[in-house]
Design a protein around this nucleic acid. Structure first.
Lengths: 124, 124
DNA sequence: CCTATAATCAACCGCATGGTTGATTAAGGA
DNA sequence: TCCTTAATCAACCATGCGGTTGATTATAGG
């Protein structure tokens, strides 16, 4: 929970069960018990998964009587998409530039924001 | 390493140091020692990070004398992008549909591919 | 052949993570 | 009020992961 937002999102989606929950929540909101039903684990385990997704900003919970319906939040997806697209594009550009020749680059580019320890600023 | 491809990629990018390596490799290929230089960890640790990225299909290593230059592979990015876009779109559609009303959906949709254990097929 | 350099392998350590069981809190309904 | 249902909290356990140090494998070069 102390990690940066991007790490939290990627980390949250690194688990197949959590990805499946996201897939199901994209179709309809659901309660914890409903979400837990198809899986072979306890409700508590699912509750923990949900907390991970929530900390990552992927879902939110409201209150409605004693149930707490979970809903998917779409905004945070953009965070990932932006990061991915940025480097995918760069990588592809390098390819099409027959890069090999230009391997000796500006030389002050590998001196990026090095995340010494975990880092917190910049798009990383 | 026994995990499915999507889990491997998301998991690989959940670490800020590995994301920074990807960012730097998007600019230029590099050797393990070059990559390790800006970080405050041993070369062995960086070598491990590289293995994670390699297992995820994000980088490849060739051989050139005794050094093994690392290059970024762009293809696997699409895997993530497709997954993300699919569910982001679904989520946004639900929003614009003033979903609340249609909460009682087709009813055979939460019955997706439930990943009982880890799962291996389908786009997940 | 011997040595220096690039990188990995191997064993180990501390901590986070996914899972469990058992107890607790919150809200409705009889 | 008492009981049932929904969900979380708490403690615990095994495994995985990021990191370390130390040894080992390749290749280049004197």
């Amino acid at each position: 929970m102390t990690a940066d937002p991007l790490s939290r999102v990627f980390s949250a989606l690194a688990d197949p069960t959590r990805r499946d929950m996201v897939a199901r929540l994209a179709v309809a909101d659901a309660t914890v018990n409903e979400l837990a039903e198809p899986y072979d684990v306890t409700v508590q385990a699912v509750s923990k998964h949900l907390k991970v997704l929530e900390d990552a900003g992927l879902v939110s919970r409201s209150r409605e009587a004693q149930r707490r319906p979970v809903r998917l939040e779409a905004e945070v997806f953009d965070l990932m998409t932006k990061w991915i697209e940025r480097y995918r594009r760069q990588a592809e550009e390098r390819y099409s530039r027959l890069d090999g020749l230009l391997a000796t680059m500006p030389d002050d580019i590998g001196t990026n924001p090095p995340p010494q320890p975990p880092q917190t600023g910049a798009p990383t």
